[in-house]
Amino acid sequence: MTDRNMKEHRNRYYAIGMGAVLLLLFACNLFFGSLSIPCQETFHILMGDETAKESWRFIILESRLPQALTALLSGAALSVSGLLLQTTFNNPLAGPSILGINTGASLGVALVMLLMGGSIGVGSLTFSGFLAVLIGAILGALCVMVIILLFSSIVKGTLTLLIIGIMVGYIASSAISLLNFFATTEGVYSYMIWGLGSFSGVSLSQMPYFSGSILIGLIASLLLIKPLNALLLGERYAQNLGIHIKRSRNLLLATVGLLSASTTAFCGPISFIGLAVPHIARLLLGTSNHNTLLPFTILTGASVALLCNLACSLPGENGIIPLNAVTPIIGAPIIIYVLVHQHKIQYFN
């Protein structure tokens, strides 16, 4: 009993700690950016001071705030997608970018953009435009997931499935390149920019729709904790525990589709967060039990994304580092660490 209590205490401690880190990073994202604004001024602006300098007010409320919110939501969404995929495919190296799901979503976005008039870019979208892009991204992501799912019943090895995912991703990116070939120069340029990844793609007016779809996905994932835990035993055991396998898996994949497609549509195909964060969360918390792991993954994912966003603005007034240049620096070493130490890490055995 004491053993379990101690573990629960420690988990609570970690959760509170990660929550504090999240708040701190969120504040940092509001106070620091490529343009330096005095902290006192930032504080006043956030408190609703109307007298502050108009350009600073605009930067903080129209740029930094939505960007921080986007980072928070996207980080959580991608990380949860990764966790859901890792459990569903019984494969700790699954993730939305590695299995080609992000690329599938990108293809959907590219198709919608081309059909809607050529240029790929989501900066100034109406609600119907937003919906079209989102549906395109979800359909693209779902297509890839169905393909992966079909293969997962044919091939047995975990590595084989990952390689098939990578191949499917390549095919999708070829299709995108072909689409770009027929697109206008501006279209190609904006697609390239989008492909570098950024949390600045969601404006404050789009925020309700964006956050709405992410929150629906996150809530859905929390409702799927019971089947997720059963799936740790594998499909046949889960079925024996009364889990409706087909229905649960479809719900899980639909949730992953919604989460990773919404982020990909607006922030570009962001790599490594979905793959690495579930590992960070498991290593810190020391459990595969989704009751605690899933909420903790949400907190960790949001924090990591906020940290990445902060790192992007490090050059100050000299410009912004692309997001996809930062995420591998944080993500790849973690994956390498996990692979090298897999014999010592509990959840791998």
Binding site: G234, Y237, T287
Partner: peptide, 17 residues
Amino acid sequence: GIILTDKTQTGGLTVNE
């Protein structure tokens, strides 16, 4: 109740869990 020879991902769970 069944017990199979299937591979599981339960290394990160405690016996209790």
